[in-house]
Design a protein around this nucleic acid. Structure first.
Length: 110
RNA sequence: CCAGAUAAUUGGAUGAUUGCUUUUAAUUAAGAGGAAAGUCCGGGCUCCGCAAGGAUAUGGUGCCGGGUAACACCCGGCGAGGGAAACCUUAGGGAAAGUGCCGCAGAAAAUAGACCGCCCUAAUUGAAAUCAUAAGGGUAAGGGUGAAAAGGUGAGGUAAGAGCUCACCGCAUUUUUGGUAACAAUAAAUGGCAAGGUAAACCCCACCAGGAGCAAGAUCGAAUAGGGUUACUAUAGUUUAUUCUUGACUGUAACCGGGUUGAUCGCAAGAUUUGAACGGCAACGUUCAAACUAGAUGAAUAAUCAUCAUUUUUUAAAAAAAUACAGAACCCGGCUUAUAAAUUAUCUGGCACU
RNA sequence: GCGGGUGUAGCUUAGUGGUAAAGCUCCAGCCUUCCAAGCUGAUUACGAGGGUUCGAUUCCCUUCACCCGCU
């Protein structure tokens, strides 16, 4: 399994706001095209309203493990994705999270 | 068996796959707590021109003895209060050094006092006694108020009364005995018995405390003159609460030479952990042996699956759901608060049986 | 990580050991043809839990929530 590249610079996060947008029950997904590289890159943002640092990190870790399974099959190359976590991300099952992400990726590229 | 009290422990287990942080030659090794939390106290460490000493202010502590690096912590005891008991709670010095406050009620709330009362004296009115009136004196037994009003009960005594006298109980002082001490004593003597409460009101007394904090601070590289060294003068200012004494710095001249940000160190071998022996009622201490056990910084310690364990629900099996509080950030010692469920030991009371 | 402050009626503020005050709002009535203004009346509160005290919003301790500063 290839390792996903993660977004770290704040400029890429700002650009993703102008791109496509999709709202799901347990997370929000943003996507924008990026010319240079031949890979898909994913970033995670969890705001302070979702609890203390431990809960926020747990949300991030769950999203990371989900996206490792899904993006290799369904994600497009040369695209940047940003997933915004919510409180439901802690509660929902792991399998249903995967289904949600795959459907979200398909719907966002219509 | 039921209801309690105290002390202590655990805080799901094992394996596989895929990842993260530090580390290593190497998938080599290691990787969250009893509270990591609150930041309420105490220390280590670092800096404050690493300043020295005195006085004052400010803040804290406050029965006695011990423990500790230190403490507002802990242990043991004493007094007071609560409980049927096991046991629990306790900021518990000083009110004749001084000041303040004590609403309403009540005669009176502090230099104690005399409203309703009780009693006596002589006088006036009525008159058999008795009662009533105003005047002088004695008294504090009774009344009602309140959180609180110059000991309680009984007997004697008296005009009425009163520790006025006596007995018992309580209290104070001195001595004695026991205890390191706080303190205790159905030990002795003396005193008729006392100027209420409040100090988590000001205050007095004794003891303790210099300030800031790892974003402290140190080094390296880059970067747009704020810094450093030496010599000289003056006594104005500064020196992290104020003030005094001493010391130091700010001024002028000459010389040297590069701040915000980033990286590295500080930063994991220590009041360390585990075990044994000895001392101590205990907190804890001493000695010996073994071990090295998280170190991030857009912030790691995880995700998924399987088996088992515990609890709940529905039950014939079996299935389903749940498994607390909560997440290190320089490090330790405490306190406080949060916490599903389970376990162990000792003690108290009740019921039943022998 | 460290330091400091504030919680009183629906809102904005007083108060301070003896049982809580004012303005605006809301409700009811009067006035008016009706509304507004005005007048009268009424409702509602000391963040939570302990302690000291005869008595606590006030004093002390613990705790909860919020705000500010250092960087």
């Amino acid at each position: 399994m290839a390792k996903l590249e993660t977004i770290k610079s704040s400029r890429d996060f700002q650009n993703a706001k102008n791109g496509l947008f999709f709202r799901s029950t347990s997370f929000l997904l943003q996507a924008i095209q990026n010319d240079n590289r031949g890979t898909t890159r994913v970033g995670y943002t969890v705001s302070k309203q979702n609890g203390n640092a431990v809960n926020r990190n747990r949300i991030k870790r769950r999203l990371r493990s989900v996206s490792n399974l899904t993006f290799e099959k369904h994600g497009k190359k040369n695209w940047n994705y940003v997933i915004i976590g919510k409180k439901n991300t802690l509660i929902v099952d792991f399998q249903s999270l995967i289904k949600e992400l795959t459907s979200a990726i398909k719907k966002i590229h219509k």
